[in-house]
Design a protein around this nucleic acid. Structure first.
Lengths: 250, 250
DNA sequence: TCAACTTTGTGCACACGTTCACAAGTGCCT
DNA sequence: AGGCACTTGTGAACGTGTGCACAAAGTTGA
């Protein structure tokens, strides 16, 4: 009861996060791709309205995002495409080359290794690793598959910055632990598990199953709505089995 | 200053968005997976603390998320695993089967088609389509690859709900347009382009390149910070920019 | 030079999402 | 029965993200 008042925080001591908002960072690659495409078509200058349309966002949001990088536009004109490409690339750290290791060369790892051109400039696939002796030694996408036992040595020798986990779910956490142990601080996870990592390490997840489930949710809602409308016209019949019944059941 | 008070909105006429917040929907698949895993290990009951840890989120967030579905927990005890699995599955629409068509059976489409088991219950890959005559006719993952010319007929005949675009970027928009034209309202896009679709259609994107770039951004910032600290050790130099140092110091 | 027009960059208000803290239940033990 | 330990569900504060609307700044044309 008489717990001490938690102090209204007169001075939040907020050091003013000087960085770029996460939501903005997540959109920069989209802008970059749209800009690259424009550049290939010979476009030299683009307005926020046009670029926003190409990127599928609102123009105000685009301008605010870009304003976090600096004032790289010209009022009354727009943005110079090449210059903006450079600035975003620099901000994302694409002016240096990041060396990537793919662990797990099954169906998915195979596809990733061969995707070469799709991984745009800035990334080099430097090593492939797998636990299956039947695959080790093969050449995939121009690289030899090495045994996962050599993981630590490979990370060291090849100066790996980013690890891609494309193993079965059962092996993912162990592989991740070893990557982190070897000094990797960025991991891209394709395995359907939640990887646990120490604090400074960053993990991002790509997951087909999750995406499909989110689509299913919205698809279901759309169907339920349509059904409800259809049903509401003719007979009574409380046939609304979907979410409608759920509400009641609760 | 004499600007009229913008009216405190006594009655915001807020229709009370009856749905589940998007952020919550995006996490439900994660909870579902964690729960399934627990169930397989024979766990019957789980507290919000434990489940949150398994899903990699805070326990308060988890409880708030679950509270949007209803009151399915028991105070003092926790959640019954099986029951919660069922409730989340139902909410996500996984109690019915969604029929998926994959367009583009290159490296990636190949991998997706063979992923069979990984696409958990609720989804059936019902058709494969490709434009390359060299691939059409082959059997991949137990399904024949059909010519993309038959797309509309296949969507109709196989009752496709969800389209997966795994084509090269150049073909993606056209394929997407045709899927939508054939009545598909949910699209999962693996091609590195922003797909433009009419309003009721939902598109989600899975993009390795974007994810790598986001990782690179954070990796770069980490390196820059570390470098700044290295430099700052000899001289006094108040280079330590507040929050940056805090991150590291932690 | 000046006015009309275009487009950026941003202040502001609002909506959304996250976290804290605790009242309201539930089960267990005496 | 009653007290104790535990856990959910949620009100409220806080922080982040979005969109409007407009001043500032630039260009074009006369």
């Amino acid at each position: 009861m008489s717990t001490q008042r938690p102090a209204p925080l007169v001075r939040p001591a907020r050091p003013l996060r000087q960085g770029i908002p996460d939501a903005t960072v997540a959109r920069l690659p989209v802008y970059l791709r749209a800009l690259t495409s424009l550049a290939e078509h010979g476009v030299e200058t683009v307005s926020s309205e046009e670029l926003a349309a190409a990127a599928g966002v609102g123009s105000a949001k685009l301008r605010k995002d870009l304003s976090h990088l600096g004032s790289y536009g010209t009022r009354g004109v727009g943005y110079e495409v090449d210059y903006l490409v450079y600035q975003i690339s620099r901000e994302l750290g694409l002016t240096q080359d990041w060396r990537v290791a793919i662990v797990g060369v099954g169906n998915l790892g195979h596809a990733l290794a061969n995707y070469g051109g799709f991984v745009s400039r800035g990334f080099t696939i430097a090593a492939l690793l797998d636990a299956d002796p039947a695959i080790v030694g093969e050449t995939v996408g121009g690289l030899p598959v090495r045994p996962v036992a050599e993981l630590e040595a490979v990370v060291e020798a090849e100066d790996i910055h980013i690890g891609v986990v494309a193993t079965p779910a059962s092996a993912a956490q162990e592989v991740c632990d070893r990557l982190v142990g070897a000094g990797v601080t960025s991991v891209l996870n394709f395995a359907p598990v939640v990887l646990v990592v120490p604090d400074p390490v960053m993990v991002r997840k790509v997951d087909l199953s999750t995406e499909l489930q989110i689509l299913a949710f919205h698809e279901q809602r759309r169907m339920a709505t349509r059904l409800a409308l259809d049903v509401s016209s003719p007979a009574v019949e409380s046939a609304v089995s979907g979410s409608g019944a759920a509400e009641v059941a609760r």
